[in-house]
Design a protein around this nucleic acid. Structure first.
Length: 456
RNA sequence: GUGGUUGUAGCUCAGUUGGUUAGAGCGCCUGAUUGUGGUUCAGGAGGUCGUCGGUUCGAGACCGAUCUUCCACCCCA
C-alpha cells in the first residue's frame, strides 16, 4: 500500500533554488568569519546526554531531542524505576545520547578534549544544524542551522569589539541594512539584582525584565512580585523602566542605580569600553544599542550579551545572539577559560532576506547556456564547444535528448537559463554557433571564441 | 509543555440550512507550429475533500481522535 509521504513537524526540504540561496548566506558568513581570522571545526550531530543535559536550564533540557539506546533498552531498566512511570527519571536509563542543541556546548567539550593541541587564543567558527524539540512557529524550526564564531582563551574586550564589527560586516555584505545589535552585560544585571536584594533570584529577575517591551512595566513588576522580589526592591528599579536617551546618558543613569555594586560598576566599565571603541571605529549599516532589559536565557553568560534584531518592520525574532562566558569549560573540568562568541541564525536570516527581496538576482541562476540537441553529430559538435566553455569557467550543458525544439526551448525557459545555443547542419558546416538571448529573444551567429567572450 | 488555528486538483482558493456525477483561476500535457520558448486559440489529464472512527436514509460540510500548518505563551536562532 502506498502511503502519503511526509516529513516530521518543524523540518523542511530545500529545493534547488532554496539551497542556492542558503549557500549564498553560508558563503557570505564564512567569508567574513575567515576574514576575521576564525578557523572551522565540526562536531558530531549527537553528543553523550551528560554533555548536554543541565547546560541550558530546565526548559533547555525539555527541548533536547533524546536518542533511544540501541538493543533491548527496556530490559536493563530496574523494575522500580520502570513502574514509577516518571519519564524524566526513566530517560537517563533508556537514552544515553542526544542531538546537539546548540554549537557552543559541543565547542566547549571540544576545547577541553583538545586543549593540548589548541593554540590559544583559539578562534573557531562552526556552521552546522542543531535540533530542538520546540513547537514550530514563524522562524522557529526543530532543525535549523547556526553559524557560530567564538574566541576562547582571551579575556580581552577587544574581542567583543571585533565581534560587533563582524556582525556589522556580515549583515552589510548581505545588504541587510539597519539591523540593531543590542548589547547588555550580565554583570549589570547581577549588580541590579544585588542592589535590590534579589541576588538569589537573578534568573527570575532577568527573565521578567526581559519581557519589558513585550508585556509592559506593570506586568513585569507583577511578575517580579510573584517571584518573591520585594516591593522595596522593585521601587529601586523605577529609574530602569524609564531609562532613555543615548548610550552615554543611559549609562550615567545606570551608574546612579549601581553606585553600591562593584560588579555592576565593572559591567558598566566594560560596556563603555566597547561603545567607545565602536564609536571610534564606526559601523557600516548596523547600530549598536544598549538594552538593559536584554537578558538571554542561557545561564552561562557572565559578561557582555548580544542580540541582533532584524530591521524594524520585519516581524522576526532575533537573527543572532551571543555573549561572553567566563567559565564555560569549567563544567568539563577546565577552569578559567574565558570565551566570547556570537551566533547567526541562518534560517531566520533567509526569511528576512526573502521578505525584503534582498537576494541578488544572480543567485538563482545556475546555468549560463544550454545547447539545443539536433541529433548525434550535432551533439558531438556541441559537446566540443561545451568543453571549451566549461574550461573557461562557464556553466554549459547539452540537452540530452533530440527532442522537439519547442520542448527544449521550454526547458531552458523554465530553468531560467539566459542563453541557448542552436547548432544544426548550417552552423556545423561554417563552424559557427547560433546564440540566442532568451530574455530579449535576439540571436546571432558567432564563432567559438566570440561565444566564450560573451560570458566573460 | 499550555491555549488557539488550519487542511478541498501541482499552486491559490470557492463549495449555500447536510442532498445527484465536488468547481474556478493559474500551472501541467497535446495540437495549431518538422530550426525557435514567452503571447493567442483549440483540446486533454489531475481530487477515495489530511487520516481513522462516529452520527445520519445520505457527510467535503456535523461530532471525536490523530497528524499537519500557522499563531500566542514558555523559551529561543
Amino acid at each position: 500500500m502506498a502511503q502519503k509521504p511526509s516529513i516530521p513537524k518543524g523540518t523542511r526540504d530545500f529545493n534547488p533554488e532554496q539551497v542556492t540561496k542558503r549557500n549564498y548566506i553560508f558563503n557570505t558568513i564564512q567569508n567574513q568569519f575567515e576574514k576575521f581570522g576564525f578557523q572551522p571545526i565540526e562536531t558530531p550531530s549527537f553528543e553523550n546526554s551528560e554533555t548536554l543535559m543541565g547546560k541550558y536550564g530546565d526548559e533547555g533540557d525539555r527541548l533536547i531531542f533524546k536518542i533511544l539506546n540501541s538493543g533491548d533498552y527496556l530490559s536493563k531498566v530496574n523494575d522500580g524505576i520502570y513502574n514509577e512511570k516518571d519519564s524524566n527519571k526513566l530517560t537517563s536509563f533508556i537514552s544515553e545520547k542526544a542531538l546537539r542543541y546548540d554549537l557552543t556546548v559541543p565547542f566547549a567539550r571540544y576545547v577541553v578534549q583538545n586543549q593540548n593541541d589548541i593554540e590559544f587564543p583559539f578562534k573557531r567558527y562552526q556552521m552546522q544544524p542543531v535540533w530542538r524539540a520546540d513547537r514550530p512557529q514563524k522562524g522557529r524550526f526543530r532543525e535549523f542551522y547556526q553559524c557560530d564564531a567564538d574566541v576562547v582563551g582571551s579575556t580581552s574586550l577587544w574581542q567583543e569589539v571585533e565581534l560587533v564589527q563582524l556582525y556589522d560586516a556580515v549583515f552589510t555584505t548581505l545588504c541587510l541594512k539597519d539591523t540593531t545589535i543590542k548589547i547588555n552585560n550580565r554583570k549589570i544585571l547581577s549588580g541590579i539584582a544585588e542592589v535590590i536584594g534579589a541576588s538569589d533570584k537573578l534568573i527570575d529577575f532577568t527573565v521578567a525584565l526581559d519581557k519589558l517591551d513585550k508585556i509592559g512595566e506593570e506586568k513585569v513588576k507583577l511578575e517580579m512580585l510573584d517571584k518573591g522580589i520585594s516591593q522595596a526592591g522593585i521601587d529601586k528599579l523605577q529609574p530602569l523602566f524609564t531609562l532613555s536617551g543615548d548610550f552615554g546618558s543611559q549609562v550615567s543613569q545606570l551608574k546612579d542605580i549601581l553606585s553600591n555594586s562593584e560588579e555592576g560598576k565593572k559591567g558598566i566599565e566594560e560596556l563603555e569600553f566597547i561603545d567607545a571603541a565602536i564609536s571610534e571605529l564606526g559601523l557600516e549599516t548596523a547600530q549598536l544599542q544598549l538594552d538593559v532589559t536584554l537578558a538571554r536565557g542561557l545561564n552561562y553568560y557572565t559578561g557582555a550579551i548580544f542580540e541582533v534584531s532584524a530591521p524594524a518592520g520585519v516581524k522576526m525574532g532575533s537573527i543572532g545572539g551571543g555573549g561572553r562566558y567566563d567559565d564555560l569549560t569549567g563544567i568539563f573540568g577546565m577552569p578559567n577559560m574565558s570565551g566570547v562568541g556570537i551566533s547567526f541564525g541562518l534560517d531566520r536570516i533567509y526569511l528576512v532576506l526573502e521578505e525584503l527581496g534582498l537576494f541578488p538576482e544572480t543567485v538563482s541562476k545556475t546555468l549560463d547556456v544550454l545547447f539545443i540537441n539536433f541529433g548525434d553529430s550535432e551533439a558531438l559538435y556541441s559537446l566540443k564547444a561545451i568543453k571549451s566553455l566549461r574550461e573557461n569557467g562557464i556553466n554549459a550543458e547539452l540537452y540530452p535528448e533530440n527532442a522537439k525544439m519547442k520542448k527544449q526551448m521550454q526547458h531552458a525557459n523554465k530553468r531560467n537559463i539566459p542563453y541557448v545555443v542552436l547548432v544544426g547542419e548550417q552552423e556545423m558546416s561554417k563552424s559557427t554557433y547560433t546564440l540566442k538571448n532568451m530574455l530579449k529573444g535576439e540571436q546571432s551567429e558567432v564563432s567559438l571564441t566570440e561565444l566564450i567572450s560573451q560570458f566573460k
